[in-house]
Design a protein around this nucleic acid. Sequence first.
DNA 1: GTAACTCGGATATTCAAGGTCCGATATAAT
DNA 2: ATTATATCGGACCTTGAATATCCGAGTTAC
Lengths: 155, 155
Amino acid sequence: MLKLNRTTEYGLIALRHLSQRQAGDASSAREIADVYGLPFDILAKTLQRLKESGIIQSAQGARGGYMLRRPLDQVTLAEFLELMEGANGVVACAEKPEHETACEFQSKCQIHGMMRGLNTRLKAFLSGIRLSEFTAEKISPEPIQLENFSRQVNS
Amino acid sequence: MLKLNRTTEYGLIALRHLSQRQAGDASSAREIADVYGLPFDILAKTLQRLKESGIIQSAQGARGGYMLRRPLDQVTLAEFLELMEGANGVVACAEKPEHETACEFQSKCQIHGMMRGLNTRLKAFLSGIRLSEFTAEKISPEPIQLENFSRQVNS
DNA sequence: GTAACTCGGATATTCAAGGTCCGATATAAT
DNA sequence: ATTATATCGGACCTTGAATATCCGAGTTAC
């Protein structure tokens, strides 16, 4: 239940990676894909999406790559998920304005109101979790060797 | 994000319906499907599943149908979701025992531990919500007319 | 100019969810 | 007994979203 999709997982791995770099130190999509064995094309699109949202920033061209832009303790899981997976509520109709008769069962389904309530509570829960919690230096049996990838984007 | 699947929604609608019947009053799958405009076959399977889990009980044969077995205030959303959608964690590996190297990225992905933590917190959140909350008599612009379907299973 | 990047659209592939069909069995009413 | 109405449950089809692949275009460091 409530399973995250792959791109969200890739995004978290990437953000964690970026958060461990020194300020000004960029990582390319290729580098991250190689380190964690992720599919390059998908990760690249994921990073582009994160960039559009302003969580990370990019540097084009050779020796380019991605860097964090916003501190991860200022990004909630709710915001991140909505960004990665869209604003889908627990039920499709739960996200839409009250006056839109979005629910296909309309007044018949009867659970519409409760679903909206659940949705609100869930969002509050997710808003209480910050991405920095996934960033902490823990459970790293063997620290990743990043030396071969290190580079300065502002040389 | 975190969207419920259809069968879960159908299940909630059905449980709500059953909870509004008098004790001893059974509803058939056909009846519920007709009232809410749900696909009969799918609803029928959903009800069978709910019966296997012991939340509802069935009476076979003509004039048979389903009745609540457990009070809905004793069923948590966590239990219900696991029943309807399986024990999938936020990430596949989050549900499996620690010693199983279930994570396909193994130690590399680094977010494994945090995902388990998130999963635990999410389950605690869902365990704090009872199905009876979706059962309350509210937001019913026009009460459903059930007279044509009423019947006693223990005549 | 070339190599290493980001950028972004187009398109394939895969898989689970959603939906359909049908036969078997059980039971109440006639 | 026969019939109508149920649950029961397996097999199968369909569809759409998630996932993955491919490729061309624009940028920048060297």
